[in-house]
Write a protein that binds this DNA or RNA. Structure first.
Length: 643
DNA sequence: GTTCTTAAAA
């Protein structure tokens, strides 16, 4: 009998012909189902499609097991909704609709097409609903940003006695994160606890961490994160970006190190880019290089790390190491738009405007089309290099040659381009001719040019316009008060300060920083906290005297002649960059490049002294301010004294 | 013997 059973499909004596056919058919549908699933899982939708076509040509029909795979295949191939509707009517004809797995797939399909009533119709037809079907409804609404509907279904399922699971809740949470609705997110947190939703699900916990980070409640996020038994890339990444948003570079690096040392989780590319952004923002090359090392170790294939390479180039640019950025850029095998734009921006920030424009030509030759960000990079490169004519041409070509409409950021670049070059009237006319209402930042851009060229009348006008749009813009008050200080109008100055005080606005205190032997040193105005402060101040004085001897008059034009001593100190930049430079010169005798960062614009006085020191000590110095980089070498600066 | 629902990103 055993033997007979094995021979069954082949022996007409034991079974009728039609039975054999059914047997083969069933067998084939099963094989077909598994094959198509294998193709889908290995990401070969085309193979799945050819397989399906062959299957149909042989006269076979899909069964209920086939439907979910077919729907998945539709999405992978981006088929229009019509295809999906065919599936729906097939399901109804064959009576598969009450198969809950089939109907759940249909619900998901309609949500993906954005056809919500289609999902609801299917849902209403089903008599026996399980957690997964309910969850599909919640997920569908929440992924489409319809948070209220998602919450409604969450409540309804509980009322009907279906207990939501971790997946249900994390779906709602992601919508809360996207919409930044902290209170609802906390509500969902409470709901999950009340309804005994299992909380030791790693994905759910990560979703909570992510939600609290996105809703700007880092403390809650940290509390959950610290208690997690197992962490995944999402939770690590959420907490790292949370610290980054909070401006705490130290914590970012601390957590990142914990992650790497822990060794369990490989940092993903988004984690690496967050960390690199922090390193770039603080010019922390030391840690930036460590992350570079991580990436090199992790990636075996150069082609897989384009996003990381782009972030690295940006980090080196912002850390003031243009040479490394260029070297890396040249080595990237398949550069994309971001790669080119980052490098163009990098040249611009380092004062190499001509190189930026040449690189743009190379980019076009390689067949890559610029986008609006590329034009921001180009226009700001022109404004840093005083290339007014070139900037105008590029601005004109934006719409004419690339069909890109200039936006507010481009307008701001143009105002800056004219203003920085001293064409204040043209800058003003440009603002007047703009097709949209200028924002506060446009007027602030004009204001900062007015300060460079000491046009108090226009400055007051620009400041007024900017403050009308936002009376809390501290930068505007500060620029204006410096201009009053420059021209010795003490009454106006104290008026501005009074307004600032009333509004609770604090002037930004100047500080500079420098990295030495793996440590970061920070200097504030009239800082005497350092153990070698006395030597630093003496050294600065010595340089001042040497400069006077050779006829380099230190430029005090930034301060009016009748300025009081304390105004000189506080209203200029505070000269914290001088302190940082003196510190390095005392502490380090190597000939390596000196890199100093500053949170405010460099003042003329310090700029002159840095040039002198670079010649006198024969050292290269890079000074970063919020807008750009100055490279001092042999008594010259890369900005050609224009910044 | 198979099928359905989760989290972020330059």
């Amino acid at each position: 009998m055993q033997n007979a059973k094995r021979l069954l499909p082949y022996n007409p004596f034991f079974t009728s012909f039609s039975n054999i056919k059914a047997e083969i058919k069933h067998h084939s549908t099963y094989t077909f189902n598994t094959t198509i699933r294998t193709h889908l899982n290995s990401n070969h939708p085309e193979k799945a499609l050819t397989h399906f076509t062959k299957f149909k040509e042989q006269g076979f029909l899909p069964d209920s097991f086939t439907i979910p795979s077919l729907i998945k295949l539709c999405f992978r191939l981006n088929q229009p909704p019509l295809h999906g509707e065919n599936i729906h009517s097939f399901v109804i004809r064959k009576g598969y609709l009450q198969d809950i797995i089939v109907s759940t797939s249909l619900v998901e399909m309609y949500f993906k097409y954005g056809f919500f009533s289609g999902s609801c119709n299917v849902f209403d037809e089903i008599s026996q609903r399980d957690v997964v079907l309910w969850t599909a409804m919640v997920t569908g609404f929440s992924q489409n940003g319809l948070l209220n509907e998602a919450l409604e279904f969450l409540g309804r399922m509980v009322k009907e006695g279906i207990r939501p699971n971790g997946i249900t809740v994390s779906s709602v949470l992601s919508a809360c994160s996207k919409l930044m609705v902290l209170n609802l997110g906390r509500g969902v947190h409470g709901f999950s606890i009340r309804n005994n939703v299992s909380m030791d699900d790693m994905v759910l916990e990560s979703a909570f961490v992510d939600m609290y980070v996105k809703c700007n409640n880092l403390n809650y996020a940290i509390r959950i994160f610290d208690r997690m038994k197992n962490r995944n890339s999402v939770s690590w990444n959420a907490i790292i970006t949370g610290h980054a948003h909070n401006g705490s570079g130290e914590n970012v690096l601390r957590v990142f190190k914990e992650m790497v040392w822990g060794g369990r989780e490989q940092p993903g590319s988004s984690t690496l880019t967050s960390v690199l952004q922090v390193c770039g923002g603080t010019s922390d090359l030391l840690h930036g290089r460590e992350v570079h090392g991580c990436i090199v170790k992790r990636c075996t294939c150069n082609l897989d790390r384009l996003v990381e390479d782009n972030a690295l180039i940006d980090m080196y640019v912002k850390g003031g190491d243009l040479d490394s950025a260029v070297a890396l850029f040249k080595g990237v095998p398949a550069k994309n738009l971001v790669t080119w734009t980052t490098m163009i921006m990098g040249y611009g920030m380092h004062g190499l405007s001509k190189e930026a424009l040449e690189l743009f030509n190379e980019m076009k030759e390689s067949g890559i089309q610029p986008d609006s960000i590329t034009f921001i990079a180009l226009l700001s490169a022109c404004s840093h290099g005083e290339l007014v004519k070139e900037g105008e041409q590029i601005y004109m070509s934006m719409h004419r040659d690339y069909n890109i409409n200039p936006e507010m950021k481009h307008f701001a670049c143009m105002v800056d381009l004219y203003g920085r070059a001293g064409f204040l009237q043209q800058a003003y006319n440009f603002i007047e001719s703009m097709p949209v209402e200028p924002t506060e930042f446009i007027w602030a851009a004009l204001l900062s040019s007015c300060r460079i060229y000491k046009n108090l009348g226009l400055a007051e006008k620009a400041a007024k316009k900017a403050l009308l749009l936002n009376q809390h813009n501290a930068g505007v008050y500060i620029l204006l008060s410096r201009m009053y200080a420059d021209s010795g109008q003490w009454e106006d100055l104290s008026k501005v300060r009074l307004v600032m005080k009333d509004l609770g606005l604090k002037p930004v205190t100047a500080h500079s920083w420098v990295e030495l032997e793996g440590k970061l040193y920070t200097f504030t105005v009239r800082d005497r906290l350092n153990s070698c402060s006395d030597r630093m101040y003496r050294l600065i004085d010595t340089f001042k005297q040497r400069m006077q001897k050779v006829g380099c008059v230190s430029d005090d034009s930034g301060v009016g002649n009748n300025a009081r001593e304390e105004e000189k100190e506080s209203d200029l930049c505070g000269h914290t960059e001088k302190l940082a430079l003196a510190f390095v010169l005392i502490k380090s005798h190597s000939q390596s490049l000196i890199r100093i960062g500053k949170n405010l614009r460099v003042c003329k006085d310090c700029h002159e002294m840095f040039k002198f020191i670079s010649e006198f000590t024969d050292r290269e110095i890079i000074l970063k301010d919020p807008n750009r980089y100055h490279k001092f070498r042999h008594g010259q600066c890369s900005c050609s004294d224009f910044w």
